[in-house]
Design a protein around this nucleic acid. Sequence first.
DNA 1: CCGAAGTTTCAATTATTTCTGAACGAATTG
DNA 2: CAATTCGTTCAGAAATAATTGAAACTTCGG
Lengths: 185, 185
Amino acid sequence: MDDKQERWLEAELLVADAVGDVIEHWGFRKALGRVWSVLYLSDESLAAAELAERLQMSAGSVSTTLTELQRWSVVHRVFRAGERREYYEAETDFWKMISKVVSERERFVTRSVRERLARASQLLVGARDAGSRARIERIARLQSFADVAERVIDTFVRSGRADFGSFSDLLTLPRALMNRARRSD
Amino acid sequence: MDDKQERWLEAELLVADAVGDVIEHWGFRKALGRVWSVLYLSDESLAAAELAERLQMSAGSVSTTLTELQRWSVVHRVFRAGERREYYEAETDFWKMISKVVSERERFVTRSVRERLARASQLLVGARDAGSRARIERIARLQSFADVAERVIDTFVRSGRADFGSFSDLLTLPRALMNRARRSD
DNA sequence: CCGAAGTTTCAATTATTTCTGAACGAATTG
DNA sequence: CAATTCGTTCAGAAATAATTGAAACTTCGG
């Protein structure tokens, strides 16, 4: 029945857009979620052209999106004997997806931020007055925060478990160093 | 010494931009991280004008940014007796910040996505052929994924601990329902 | 080798996000 | 109550990001 087909296409889009919105909320392009969804919902692997058709995207955009999804190990290319085109299927191990994404984001913190904090700290060495000491201390806090964050995320990626308990007071300065007006709300 | 002051300004910007980049990587505006940093590094609470000055932002943009930071409970307004202007200070309990953000993002999944998945599922009820059944099953998987995700995130927000072990095979379909070409890479 | 089919790349366009600056409003003071 | 100081808002400007469409490439069969 044709009615059935039509309903299915509507349902597919509904799901694709929902997933697209979720991952957009987590900082990715909506298209990534939409393409993954169609692949996930499909019985069999699909070629780029079919994705473009179903999601009303251009060939270029589908290509870009598939490349990115593969970079995140969230979609895989599959080989079909005798077929010229390339087919794709969705990764279904969600843990793989999460851990890949998280560790990727972690790498950024590690590499780039660390050295900038260190450089900032360098700029202040030798200063002896109270103000400077307090500033040095605060930068040091951010650095140890980066350390802890890296450890926690690392453990998370490895084991699937995370404990953020140690984060609470990492940034809070000892009373002695504080000199603030009282909070109003 | 003026040299000291200059170095400090440079260090401050270095830190602010580093933090800005991090939080940008996690899906927020860079300005949020920059403003939070300057507040965190400061001895005392600061007024909007000082933030604008130090970060070279317009008054409007500082105002918007501070409002958003407060919405996330990441910056607080403080009252200074006898002063007309409003002053701000950084929240230093990082756990508060994380949990607020995560629970906010969770809310989105809960509200909007659930009903769309349900609607998609509705569209397919009654279909008896194998293809339709498989599709219904896959949508059901996404739904239970949403359930589990919500539980895990909820626990995380409450306890600071998360265990993603249960995620691995949630989306994977039973062999019987699969009909795919073999993976090529 | 040629041509067809499929894919990637990229400059140009379009859409979206963010920021600015000026106007408005509220609060405070002389 | 006029003048001043802050803060917010918002229309338009500027900056970024995503998408298209077409050209360039790649692969493969003949």
